[in-house]
């Protein structure tokens, strides 16, 4: 029997980027996963947690575990929200077996795709120069790829998956894993630095000839896209699932 996967769609993707959720769903179903979308889900609580308002997170964390505990796996197209659940929920659950179990079976979408479903390549074409933005939480919290600070052999399933797709050429960036400057409420409370960071990322992709800018996290892309559209740069922004769904 196919595993039953609970699809965790972060609140801002639900409200602002439905196409990302749809692409994720289609890809999972394409590979034979039995996907269910629990209706009552809302937000993992990360914005409150990152602002220090942990009192406001507790109830959301408990809701989250209640909603998703029954699935074989929980899959989410956002490294940042997965990292919230996996790494920052512990303080709301002391010695809670349900949480520990859920934590172990919660996956970022590409992680699930490449490591659990073992998808190594896709048959379609995507004839574009693609710039892969390494979203920080996927990189340095979930360790989905090697970060430039840590000394060791390089790795990264998403990069490999993209490289394996016909027509994809990856951009060579000057700073391969610098933060885009979104950072949740940081984007607003430190607006000046946040926008300069975003602009610098966009410039790096511009010099590298990026046509399509992608990432594991739509939040980084929302910020970068906001700058790209304001400055009318010829770069298209797509979540990784939107690229992959075109290559099925």
């Amino acid at each position: 029997m196919a595993p039953k996967v609970g699809l965790f769609i972060p609140c801002y993707i639900d409200q602002l980027y439905p196409q990302v959720g749809i692409a994720t769903l289609k890809i999972l179903e394409h590979f034979g996963v039995d996907v269910e979308y629990p209706e009552s889900q809302t937000c993992c609580g990360q914005p409150m947690a990152n602002t220090g308002c942990t009192n406001e997170v507790g109830p959301l964390a408990k809701r989250f575990v209640d909603i998703f505990k029954g699935y074989d796996a929980v899959v989410c197209p956002s490294g940042s929200c997965v990292s919230m659940v996996k790494h920052h929920y512990a303080e709301y659950f002391s010695d809670n077996a349900e949480y520990e179990e859920l934590k172990a079976k919660t996956y970022e979408f590409c992680d699930y795709l490449t490591n659990i479903l073992e998808v190594k390549t896709l048959s379609g074409r995507f004839p574009h120069k693609v710039g892969l933005h390494q979203s920080c939480h996927g990189l340095r919290e979930l360790r989905l790829a090697s970060s430039s600070e840590i000394m060791g052999p390089p790795f990264g399933n998403v990069r490999e998956l993209l490289e394996s797709i016909e027509g994809v050429e990856l951009s060579q960036l000057q700073r391969p894993d610098e933060c885009c400057g979104f950072g949740g409420t940081f984007a607003v409370s430190e607006e000046a630095v946040s926008c300069m960071m975003g602009e610098d990322r966009v410039h790096d992709h511009e010099q590298a000839g990026t046509e399509v800018l992608t990432a594991l996290d739509m939040s980084c892309l929302m910020h970068l896209d906001g700058i790209i559209r304001r400055q009318k740069k010829p770069i298209r922004v797509m979540h990784i699932s939107e690229i992959l769904v075109e290559c099925l």
């Binding site: 769609i9 980027y17 439905p18 959720g21 749809i22 975003g198």
Partner: peptide, 19 residues
């Protein structure tokens, strides 16, 4: 503060849940 140097996301017709 978001919109000083950035565009807001384009609001979709329906949410993922509605879809």
């Amino acid at each position: 503060d978001w919109g000083k140097q950035r565009e807001l996301p384009i609001i979709p017709k329906q949410s993922f849940r509605e879809w």
